[in-house]
Amino acid sequence: MKRFIIVILIGLSIVFVMDFILGKTLRHFYFTQDSGLQHRTTVSIEKTEADILIFGASKANHHYDPRILEDSLNMSAYNTGRDGQFVFYQTALLKAALKRYTPKLIILDFIGTFAYDQHDYDRLSNLLPYYEDHPELRDIILLRSPFEKYKMISQIYPYNSMLTTIAVGNLEFNKHRDFNINYDGYVPLHGVYNKKLDSVRTSLTYEIDDNKINAFEEFLTLTKQHDIPLVVIYSPIYYLYDRDFSIELCSKLCQKNGIPFIDFSRDKEFLKDINLYEDESHLNQVGVEIFTKKVGRIIKQRGLLSNTAADLKSTN
């Protein structure tokens, strides 16, 4: 038995050394990336000091062009949206940003559902590289599993399955690849949708995830606490639906907190023209130009940016 324990300890020591060396190497190259998804997350968490921050998932990332908002509101803007990332990720990013500075306006693109999905917890692995340096993110990361802090003993674990992405993110050619060209975080889509407007979808039954509702409420509370104007938007979709519990709840929570909720899902302007879409849930660049301009106008009209450069500019 003693011999076996010694052998296991020697084996673990070798693994520990390999893990340390490889983990530290991956960490170094993770943060030297200058293109790609992971780089954009690093910018969102550690670098951006833009006046306007846009939060959300893929719809946020592909629907809001910061350049248009910068033009219409005369403020800098950054799009932190990331494909497949839901409210946990958005709340985590907001916490990290608030630790560094106070944005002047926040736009939260509501993903449209509070449904439980284990994958949304799994996807929080994208925040693991920031666990060590950002204690403010830990509560959210630990939603993955209470064992996460023990798994972090491994230096490789936070970068699990990221080897190729990290390698590519450090290569010069990656900056010029179509799907990596971003404008302050915004990644445009260029395709055109070619299917008919989907018939009315009746309300779906799904299991509600209380953690998601809590994270959403935390997002609203944080902006209130920091006195940051917030607008929650449900951006255009190319299908019709009857009613949905999550959207109604989102509207109610916003109302309760005195936060404007703008629902574009039934906006006729975006339902009549298929040429504005890449697929049923995502606008293409043509649609984005119209949509972002409209968002800018609404922000101004509703006076969501009081005492802002936009107002100063208009009064001059």
Binding site: D19, L22, S125, Y159, S161, L163
Partner: peptide, 19 residues
Amino acid sequence: QFLVYASVVTIILTIGVFD
């Protein structure tokens, strides 16, 4: 053999699917 099996564990940590 130590090195091989330690490498296999390291590979699991690096490219294994934990979810």
